[in-house]
């Protein structure tokens, strides 16, 4: 037994990088390694875009637009955002599992930034969001979807959607830290996500809806995001829906980051 293993002074050498950032990146790395070792963790975000596209395009396409090809063009921005909304719930489930397994007790007993485990989780979820959008766009292109605004605008559309998803994921961070079980996270998540995604311009244009629902749909943050993405992929107004999207994203951060941090500190 080598006594050298334990006896040296307990000095912890520090590196000059911002500690909170470094620790969040370390924990994001951990989550990415976990995804790499169990690729089935990406199954939901890989299959969902395909299933949703097939369902809506071929089941409703003929009835709604007369021709499924026309409907595909309208639908892609909607499905892109919708599947992203569902993908953000995963973070709540993952955090809830970490807490149940005691992994968070370890993090909380370490001299690290309080925000690091949560920020790390949000950062690593980028892998899921990018997977979701890549699968969807590749599948849509294979079916004949084409953007009319050029690749830089399409890239911007993906970035805007990604940024919004990262802000929205704080809602599910908070839910994941607050409710008791992973199953409950999904229950609460679907309750919140269903009206927001279906009560938007994802599947149909707002003016086809009854008045009271139009009022909801036009003020729904998901609608603003879909309209932004649609504008960037297919043309149409971008500035106004983008401003709304940015505003909603900022509001989500302002409300749910503090709530999540408080829940994290209190969770026992």
């Amino acid at each position: 037994m080598t006594t050298a293993v334990l006896t040296p002074p307990p000095a912890v050498p520090t590196t000059p990088t911002l500690p909170a950032v470094q620790q969040a990146l370390t924990l994001a790395w951990r989550n990415v390694v976990k995804i790499r070792k169990q690729p089935e963790a990406l199954m939901d975000v890989s299959l969902q875009p395909i299933i949703f596209t097939v369902l809506f395009v071929f089941v409703f396409g003929g009835a709604i637009a007369g021709d499924w090809r026309d409907y595909l063009t309208y639908l892609v921005p909607g499905i892109l955002v919708q599947t992203l909304m569902f993908a953000t719930q995963g973070i709540g489930v993952a955090l809830n599992n970490d807490i149940a397994k005691g992994v968070f007790d370890r993090f909380r007993s370490l001299p690290i930034a309080r925000s690091a485990p949560l920020v790390g989780a949000v950062l690593s979820d980028v892998v899921r969001y990018v997977t979701s959008m890549t699968v969807l766009l590749a599948f849509a292109v294979a079916l004949g979807f084409r953007t009319t605004q050029g690749l830089p605008a399409a890239a911007l559309a993906v970035l805007v959607a990604l940024a919004f998803a990262m802000c929205l994921s704080w809602v599910f961070v908070w839910i994941g830290l607050t409710v008791r079980s992973a199953g409950a996270v999904q229950g609460v998540g679907f309750l919140a996500t269903f009206p927001l995604t279906f009560g938007s311009t994802a599947l149909v244009q707002a003016d086809t809806l009854p008045g009271w629902l139009q009022a909801f749909t036009r003020n729904n943050p998901v609608t603003h995001l879909i309209d932004t993405v649609r504008g960037l992929l297919l043309g149409g107004p971008v500035a106004e829906p983008l401003a709304w999207t940015a505003g909603w994203a900022a509001l989500l951060l302002a409300v749910f980051v503090p709530l999540a941090m408080r829940a994290y500190r209190r969770r026992v």
Binding site: T14, T15, P19, Q22, T26, L27, R30, L110, P111, A116
Partner: peptide, 10 residues
């Protein structure tokens, strides 16, 4: 290694 990096050991 993850815990070491969280302690910023390099």
């Amino acid at each position: 290694e993850m815990v070491g990096r969280l302690y910023r050991l390099g």
